[in-house]
C-alpha cells in the first residue's frame, strides 16, 4: 500500500511538472496576447469621382486590384481581440463580419472569417493571413456601387492588454 501511495504522489508531481512545462512552452513560443484588426469599408463605383482622400494608403492597392473609377471610404474600424476570441464588426448594408483568430504561427495569423447578411451567412472561410497583411472581401452591392471590405491584421507581442474584444468605429 505504501508503494502505491508513493507512486500516486509521484504521478501527481510529474503531471504537475508536465502542465507547468506546457505553460512554459506556450510562453516560450511567444503567443501574442492581442490581435489588432483593421476593417475598412469602401464603396467602389463608376461615377468618375476619383479616390477618397482618406484612402491615401489604399488607393494604389485598390487601383491595382479593381477597375472602378470611384472609391469612397464608408467606415474605418479598429478592433482588438485574442486568439480564440471572436470579434464582430458592423458593416454597411446590415452586414456583419465575425473574425476569430485561432493562432499565430510563423508570422501568420490563422483565423476564421464569417460574413453575414443580417442573420444569413454569406461566406465562411478559414485562412492564414500574414502579420500586417491585408485581405479584401468584396462584391456585395451597396448604394450605387460595390462594397469592398479591407481586413488588416497584426499581432502584438505585448501581454498586459485587455483580453476583452473591442472594436472602435469611425464612420464617414
Amino acid at each position: 500500500m505504501l508503494a502505491w501511495r508513493v507512486n500516486l504522489t509521484l504521478l501527481a508531481v510529474v503531471l504537475l511538472a508536465m502542465a507547468a512545462q506546457g505553460v512554459s512552452v506556450a510562453a516560450g513560443n511567444g503567443v501574442p496576447a492581442r490581435i489588432n484588426l483593421h476593417v475598412d469599408s469602401v464603396v467602389a463605383s463608376d461615377t468618375h469621382e476619383g479616390v477618397d482622400t482618406r484612402l491615401r494608403g489604399m488607393d494604389k492597392r485598390l487601383r491595382s486590384l479593381f477597375n472602378y473609377s470611384t472609391y469612397r471610404l464608408i467606415s474605418h474600424q479598429d478592433g482588438h481581440t485574442e486568439c480564440g476570441k471572436l470579434i464582430s464588426f458592423m458593416l454597411p448594408g446590415g452586414r456583419i463580419l465575425h473574425i476569430q483568430p485561432r493562432a499565430v504561427e510563423g508570422g501568420m495569423i490563422a483565423m476564421e472569417l464569417v460574413l453575414f447578411q443580417g442573420a444569413r451567412p454569406l461566406m465562411t472561410t478559414d485562412l492564414k493571413l500574414k502579420n500586417h497583411g491585408v485581405l479584401i472581401v468584396g462584391g456585395p452591392r451597396y448604394e450605387q456601387g460595390m462594397l469592398i471590405i479591407s481586413i488588416g491584421a497584426d499581432a502584438d507581442n505585448g501581454n498586459s492588454l485587455s483580453s476583452v474584444p473591442t472594436a472602435s468605429v469611425n464612420d464617414h
Binding site: 492597392r61 444569413r120 454569406l122 461566406m123 478559414d126 485562412l127 492564414k128 493571413l129 485581405l135
Partner: peptide, 20 residues
C-alpha cells in the same frame, strides 16, 4: 500571397479568388 485560404464556403454560386 498575404493569405493562405484553407476553406471557403458560400451559398453564392460564383465566388472568385485572386491575389495581386
Amino acid at each position: 500571397s498575404q493569405a493562405i485560404i484553407s476553406r471557403l464556403e458560400s451559398n453564392i454560386p460564383s465566388v472568385a479568388l485572386w491575389s495581386a
